[in-house]
Design a protein around this nucleic acid. Structure first.
Lengths: 223, 223
DNA sequence: AGTTTCATCACCCAATCATGTGATATTACC
DNA sequence: GGTAATATCACATGATTGGGTGATGAAACT
């Protein structure tokens, strides 16, 4: 990645919009992007107040989004963007490294999450990656994202109800919305046998109704 | 990251075990790690047959794990490692880039996922990151991981059932395992009213039983 | 003033579910 | 050979649920 201050307008430039309340940082980003081949800064704003209008008009490829901004913050802006133009790749650019913000940003559709101490070269790389369908983030951020996923450990932990194979099978069918009769059909057993199995499942799960069993099964990933 | 062929034994070296069936690649990795300060290759094996014994004896900090190996593959090995020694950081090192393998590896507790075409320098960086609590992966892998998370889009999309406030409240109580009678009590309304609300909920959700409603509610909505 | 939406309640009937108390056959293990 | 776990089935009883039909009042919007 080379910085180049003679910037030709190419058709393949990545069009970028920046949301950042700090004037110095905003200026730095402008200079960086203006001076880099393949990048085109088409807008830079202090907050997300006008985000809807701006995104629709400017049609950026990538948005670099600060989180902590006065009036209308970056998470709010992100959500609006993903509603109006879900194809836009939004990269969060912030000092926050807490699970809360990361989780909300990722769940709201951000594709990348960078910290402000990211060096300029890495920042340009990240924008390119975001534009190419990647999800740029540091490995410490990635670790936090992984912790949001269901892990094998959790699964093992919760499979401790020691359901038999048949019982698991029937619980699965139950979760999928099958009635006793449908389960009996699918398993080729009598409805009384289904009953019998389900009674044992309730015992093992310490529940007393289909609803509770289904909720527990889904929440604890027994299914 | 510099390669250094005069390798002093420092106490802070990252202890690494490699599982890789290709002899050439295994040799390359050995040379790379042997020649790099801060890295100590303490074992290299062709498959995961003896993984349990090896991990317990060698106590590595980081494991570099191929997936496609004869007899005992890397995903199997990963699971055994995470059971016996969950503190070990396992980085998958493979040619596979499909969702299936990535998903299984991440859910089984792998902290990193690298492709075999990763350049040596990046590989060493990744091992360090894994050792320092990071989750090294390329941004394209990261994007795939993100897709495994529930997104705001999905939530918005599915909130489209337009339940009224009361209906949402009752659905929530249903999901928590309450019977009609219990809901009636908690909401201080008659059981017939509960019925009435639930009937409307079923209509809107296109389901015909508590079980289905609960499963649907949990899988794609509020709860 | 009329219409729509929402929350509330009532009654009926058939289907389904929860629970209890059995029994039988198979497999596996000591 | 005896025991335990599993899977199968039966019968009975009462509670709960699902669907239909309809009514009332309040709020909101036209």
């Amino acid at each position: 990645m080379t910085l180049n201050f003679i910037k030709p307008m190419t058709q393949t430039s990545i069009k970028i919009v920046v949301y950042e309340d700090n004037p110095d940082l905003r200026e730095s980003l402008s200079v960086l992007l203006a001076g880099s081949i393949g990048f085109e800064l088409i807008g830079a704003f202090v907050n997300c107040e006008q985000v809807a209008k701006q995104i629709v008009e400017l049609k950026p490829d990538v948005v670099l989004m600060d989180i902590d901004m006065p009036v209308a913050n970056g998470l709010k802006g992100l959500k609006i963007i993903k509603q109006l133009a879900p194809q836009v790749n939004v990269v969060m650019f912030t000092v926050f490294e807490d699970n809360e913000n990361i989780f909300e940003a990722i769940c709201s559709g951000a594709v990348g999450y960078l910290l402000k101490r990211t060096p300029p070269v890495k920042l340009l790389e990240a924008i390119q990656e975001a534009n190419n369908g990647g999800a740029p983030m540091t490995s410490s951020i990635a670790r936090k994202v992984l912790q949001m996923l269901p892990t094998q450990q959790k699964v093992t932990e919760n499979n401790d109800y020691k359901l038999t194979e048949r019982e698991s099978e029937i619980l699965n069918l139950l979760v999928k919305g099958n009635s006793y009769k449908m389960i009996a059909d699918k398993c080729s057993i009598s409805i009384d046998t289904v009953r019998s199995h389900i009674k044992k499942i309730y015992d093992k799960l310490h529940v007393h109704s289909q609803t509770e069993a289904v909720a527990k099964a889904i929440h604890e990933r027994i299914v």
